[in-house]
Design a protein around this nucleic acid. Structure first.
Lengths: 345, 345
DNA sequence: TAGAGCCTGGACAACGTTGTCAGGCTCGGG
DNA sequence: CCCGAGCCTGACAACGTTGTCCAGGCTCTA
């Protein structure tokens, strides 16, 4: 079959360049560049000729080359734990909106709570020369970021503070929120209150545990070891932990759940119980108001956190460097029923 | 204050290049490149010297330059509707996992269901020379992608077919799923069944409506106009639509909800009703099993859809070009109670 | 010991774009 | 009629990396 000879520009896998456009329009390379970037100094007639050539060839500026030349990529990176988690979806979205308002693209990656993967991702983003980074830390040592910070990569840590490095941090008041949630249970008459949370090596988990302890201490209630379950993760283990607390020698009358995944599992367990047990969860969950009873939670505003972090990032990028700051956002107790159940003693 | 003169490499905002590394290690530029890329042909001793220089300077390869030279970016783009929607989080995550397995980075963007924004995003991704694109279409005309396809950008459309362009598509069996869901209601004795869905210009919405009509027709039930509410979006309008169907002259005994957002609102409305009304929703929702009654849904597997699309994408990228294909994934009816409520007539 | 062949390292061009700068054109005023 | 000013336009280098190609030094063998 006779193969029609194709212009280089149209060959499969090859893209037209400004040079091709220039040749077709019969102008110089730089003139094309001017048209593409809307720079002044081009006659309307010339501009139209160039535009026609662009459309005809399907030219699209190569941003890699542009970045190489200009130094800025107009993109930022977001490294979070898991995009499938309902907490991070809205967070990512709000970061994206801020980025978009600043004309930047967002690249996000999931660390899956693995410090090594976090580092791998962050460095990959740095290799692409993102202008800035929003990181939800999985690991606790971020010294590997020092050269990047020095090179001017704006960085904001979110949800948990960075390890061994001085940078902006935006987090929720995990301590205060947990303390308030547990105090709420105490105010409704509970004394034997269980706590189920993630590994204390995770900052948020540690802070929430600290809040639990503080609230108990404020009320002068000694905490039994059997009431605390730390580092459980995965539905099965949470389930067993909850059941143990409810049926042990010194059974709890209320449970404080350390994060949304724990809350969901505890709801399932409680639904199977004959006895009515109070529950307050950290993090809001969808449809919490439609359950019987409604689930009382300590809510963080993921979108607000993301927006705050992103705005802080662009402030670093736009203006003069500002000293690192730690921003703590308040949480909100939302009462819906489950936290107001009196002790069944 | 006397300013210590800094090496160019360490100055704020400037990054060391291979040239800097080469100078410091006392080797040639290309030798550094070889070490960085793990190419053979470098003595262990030389390699170590280079590695030390890399660490000392905090060198990070500039991928923009690399891309410019090599032509491939090892990144793919995903354009979806809204990352904050619980359907897209897992989808994005599964695409990311496949990308990661192929050594590629994922860039995603939200179109917010706006065709113009979709195009803007897609073209921005193309300007960055992503190797491939996964697009959940917002618009219905994708001819603007023709030059990109011709240039070899692998493309897979998801959830809805592309407009006026020949490309891979991965979608759920919206028609069959809706038909099955409605047939399920009919099998439980319902005849007056309402349908609330999105604008029919959205392919999924149109298909689900078609499924509803087909199921009704299969059963020989004529459909009253007042039973169908199309193009409603936003909780308030869905609420009103549901209430109208329930209190109109020919009130429905069951509702089929066209997507997860509609389902959630309908659940709220039904919770307020004295009469028990059956409900089947398209798309699964979290905690659906814990509600009273549990919510019967036609579920699509977002992660499976994402994985399928991404694998298809990389097949295009890895091997020889394969002709465009349309892949339809089955849905699954999950009975939990709400769909098995008999008509209250 | 000399020649062949291998292994290591470096010089150079090219990728596609943008900033700099200079040249040519037109137009108005002297 | 000539000159300067101002406006368009294009030639050229540079961004940081990788592929190609060649030079020099080494080892091994005859």
């Amino acid at each position: 079959m006779p193969q029609t000879p194709l212009r280089s520009a149209a060959r499969y896998g090859t893209r037209p360049t400004m040079k091709d456009v220039a040749a077709r329009a019969g102008v110089g390379l730089k003139t094309v560049s001017r048209v593409v970037n809307g720079e002044p100094g081009v006659t309307a007639e010339t501009e139209q000729r160039v535009q026609e050539a662009i459309d005809a060839l399907g030219f699209r500026r190569n941003d890699s080359a542009r970045v190489l030349r200009k130094g800025r990529t107009a993109s930022i990176g977001l490294v979070l734990e898991d995009l499938a988690d309902p907490f991070y979806g809205p967070l990512s979205r709000s970061v994206e909106e801020v980025a978009r308002a600043h004309g930047a693209l967002l690249i996000n990656g999931s660390s899956a709570e693995d410090p090594e993967r976090e580092q791998e991702l962050v460095l990959a983003l740095c290799a692409r020369r993102v202008d800035g980074l929003v990181v939800i830390p999985a690991g606790d040592d971020h010294r590997y970021l020092e050269p990047e910070l020095k090179a001017g990569v704006a960085t904001v840590f979110v949800d948990r503070p960075a390890g061994h490095i001085d940078a902006d941090v935006v987090l929720s008041d995990n301590f205060g929120g947990a303390r308030g949630g547990v105090a709420h249970l105490i105010a409704h008459g509970h004394r034997r209150i269980g706590f189920i949370g993630d590994m204390p090596r995770i900052h948020t988990a540690a802070e929430r545990l600290r809040g639990y302890r503080a609230a108990m201490e404020d009320a002068g209630i000694p905490v039994a070891d059997s009431w605390m379950s730390l580092g459980v993760t995965g539905p099965e283990r949470v389930r067993r932990a909850a059941e143990d607390m409810l049926t042990g020698p010194d059974p709890v009358t209320a449970i404080f759940a350390g994060n949304n995944r724990v809350t969901v599992t505890v709801i399932r367990v409680l639904a199977e119980q004959a006895r009515r047990v109070a529950l307050v969860g950290f993090d809001d969950i969808e449809l919490a108001d439609l359950l019987q009873p409604g689930v009382t939670v300590v809510a963080q505003d993921a979108a607000d956190i993301g927006r705050t972090a992103a705005e802080r990032l662009f402030r670093q990028l736009d203006g003069t460097p500002v000293p690192p700051e730690r921003i703590e956002l308040p949480t909100r107790l939302i009462t819906r029923g489950s936290g107001e159940i009196p002790p069944a003693d």
